[in-house]
């Protein structure tokens, strides 16, 4: 199996791109990229039909490495570009990859409206709880009390839960995984991509360089252990008390509903308008 997965690199990564990549050694982004490639391989999607669009930040650098139709847009705006592409060519499978600051701070408005609109897009949000590329400033998902380069005395704001935000905003499919639970991540991504309607997969990931070092988790292994110990399945979480769940988070498929999606609805508008 390992050999098969190793071979996938050559099928899906660009051969003419200048490597090495920009990510720190041990970064979770590579695990997410691996899971995305395995999910796409599992779904047997054609590279020509795939679009991977990103915003700005470490996660934003992912598209350049893969041999799809790729787009590296402006900070927070990946979903807006993706919206235009999907409406212009509904037959394309459009996936966006964003970071937590990218998707829920500067791009927060686009995120909730994309979920509300229910256009058939997939949003992968790599949540490392910090602005990594710019040097460890606090993001909308930095926990209360954590240390960040713009919160050296401790963070006094409260964090968004991205998955819950997506559910409330109306996304058709919402899941949360971690870079520790890599096999589960393949499945969550495959389900999200296959789902018709707006899908969100939040991936808890490690930025040991900018977040871990300031918060007593200075290496990837410590952060992985943290994900392992605190990521709780939805079923198990249901059995735990509020106190027992403190500091933990649910993983797995958190919402999966069917409702009319934008492309189907717009087709009806065209018929009403008398399109030939």
């Amino acid at each position: 199996m390992d050999e098969k997965f190793a071979g996938l690199r050559h099928d899906y990564l660009r051969h003419d791109k200048k490597f090495p990549h920009v990510w720190c050694p041990g970064c979770g982004n590579g695990i997410v990229l691996g899971a995305l490639i395995r999910a796409i391989d599992r779904l047997e999607l054609e590279k020509d039909e795939l679009v991977l669009a990103s915003g700005i930040g470490c996660a934003g650098r992912m598209p350049v490495y893969v041999d799809f139709n790729t787009l590296h847009t402006t900070h927070g705006r990946a979903l807006t570009f993706a919206t235009g592409i999907k409406l212009a060519k509904p037959e394309l499978n459009v996936i966006t990859v964003m970071g937590d600051g990218d998707a829920t701070a500067i791009g927060g408005n686009h995120f909730i409206h994309a979920a509300r609109r229910n256009l058939d897009l997939t949003a992968i949000i790599i949540n490392n709880q910090i602005y990594g590329m710019t040097g460890g400033q606090y993001s909308p998902t930095t926990p209360y009390g954590a240390i960040a380069s713009t919160a050296m005395h401790g963070h006094i704001e409260h964090a968004f839960s991205i998955a819950e935000l997506a559910i409330t905003a109306g996304a058709s499919f919402v899941a949360r995984g971690t870079v520790y639970h890599a096999a589960m991540l393949d499945t969550l991504l495959a389900k999200g991509i296959a789902k018709t309607g707006f899908s969100v997969i939040e991936v808890m990931s490690n930025c040991h360089t900018q977040y871990g070092r300031k918060n007593q988790m200075g290496d990837p292994v410590t952060m992985m252990k943290w994900f392992k110990e605190n990521g709780v399945s939805k079923e198990k979480a249901a059995r735990l008390s509020e106190e027992e769940m403190a500091g933990k988070f649910t993983i797995g498929v958190l919402a999966d509903v069917d409702k009319p999606n934008y492309i189907e609805e717009y087709e009806k508008i065209r018929e009403k308008a008398g399109a030939v």
């Binding site: 807006t80 592409i85 999907k86």
Partner: peptide, 12 residues
Amino acid sequence: ASMGAIIGASLA
């Protein structure tokens, strides 16, 4: 978002 969307559509 409007500007982003028209760029996306034009790229397509």
